[in-house]
Design a protein around this nucleic acid. Structure first.
Lengths: 237, 237
DNA sequence: ATTCAAAATTTGTCTAGACGTCTATACCTA
DNA sequence: TAGGTATAGACGTCTAGACAAATTTTGAAT
């Protein structure tokens, strides 16, 4: 490899590795070459290679695990749509750091649709949660959830604290719940959703509509989720 | 300085410098000691100091300029409320990188308030722009702007492209405009605004309401802006 | 006093080497 | 077979030195 002047070598190495990754030479999830192998390939010092890798880690393209090696970050997350799949488990399982943060919440009266799915009378007070789910700080999905307000009064604070709906529901005695129905479609995002997903408006989102029920089969949550189609793939068994 | 085991030296240096900054030893805008001075102070190699500084740069606490030195990043931006102050100029002048991105836009009919400020009839079609202004990637303010749709048809695309209202207005032949009135108040942000500002809902925002007029005195823009009170201070001459 | 060029200062990049920490694996032992 | 241990492989940290690039300061010439 010969270096062009005017651009630091570590940046050129970063660029080359980035090209390799987008060309599929290193596929998502793959182990990258070790530092010493890259040293030999590029004919530079180990520290120079490390500088380039640090930049790739910084931009979330690769992930480094001490003692194991560097891996191409899976940018497209396989999201199994099982009846008991939990967001944080899926993301953690891929060595990525999950986060779910509340954007806004409100208590309002159930519309006909919401009431139907939650099996309550229209006009019943429901809690609306609007949240963004992220992995390593990259937004994967935005969700609008509805829960009956009477049963889950105060759940908002717990959700904000624990950043997990599963955890919040546990505080209400629900140790186990499962997904009842899921409807899937593809749409273009509203500008608000596109912005929260940090994605262009002309890139589609996968939209799911689902109802969660407790162990007795009583609906506890109805939600509409928009997944970034560039970062998430839904897997149906 | 003696090092405690278990935590890398560069992290301890980072921590110490961070403490100095928050203790006011180095005030915002101040020049930090040079690398060689820090080398002498901490008794370590220059590269170790550089590793610590790189972390501070990464977290946006300091800013480094080659050949000049490192400076404590001004976290509270003084925003002069002159009649012709421009966001990008103010931010650039502080050696920070301005960015203004559109969150959403819509064409709708003017409410009574909007119509009054823009001096048009209620119901006139106006363009609503909802945008976030950032410096070095840190959100400083969210703004809702209204412009008469008839006069500025197509301005949305130009705004998205140039990321500047000043630039976009130039394409419509407005080389000069000035702020006519500004009303200032303090409120707590809606969850949407708080989230876009990446700020807690219990931290207040400075809310301004302003009207911009062209050189002939004709209103061209009415806007409501929410500044993060933790990051911006308004200066009135 | 002004202007221009050289020198000094300061940060950026690259190389070289040593040792620490974490992980995986092979091997030995009970 | 289960479990601990030794070892090799791989990333993390620290030191040392040299030169490059950008900026500021100095000083000489006009």
């Amino acid at each position: 490899m010969d270096w062009e002047p005017g651009l630091s070598i570590w940046k050129q190495i970063e660029k080359q590795l980035l090209a390799d990754i987008s060309d599929g030479v290193f596929a998502p999830g793959d182990k990258m070459p070790t530092e010493m192998e890259l040293v030999r390939r590029f004919g530079v010092n180990r520290h120079t290679v490390r500088r380039a890798m640090a930049a790739l880690v910084d931009s979330n393209v690769v992930r480094v695990e001490q003692g194991r090696g560097a891996f191409v970050q899976e940018q497209i997350l396989d999201y199994p749509l099982g009846s008991k799949t939990r967001f944080s488990q899926i993301v953690s399982g891929r060595h990525r750091l999950p986060d779910k943060r509340l954007v806004s919440s409100e208590v309002l009266k159930a519309t006909a649709t919401v009431a139907q799915f939650l099996d309550v009378k229209p006009g019943t007070r429901v809690i609306e949660l609007f949240s963004v789910s992220e992995a390593d700080g990259v937004p994967l999905a935005v969700a609008t959830s509805y829960l009956p307000a009477a049963r889950f009064d105060g759940i908002v604070e717990i959700f904000v604290e624990t950043k997990s709906l599963t955890e919040a529901l546990k505080r209400f005695g629900i140790d186990d719940y499962s997904r009842k129905t899921t409807r899937i479609s593809a749409t273009l995002p509203s500008s608000r959703v596109a912005n929260l997903l940090k994605q262009a408006r002309n890139r589609p989102v996968i939209s799911t509509e689902s109802v969660d029920v407790d162990s007795a089969g009583v609906p506890i949550e109805y939600g509409v989720t928009a997944f970034s189609s560039d970062r998430v793939q839904l897997i149906v068994e």
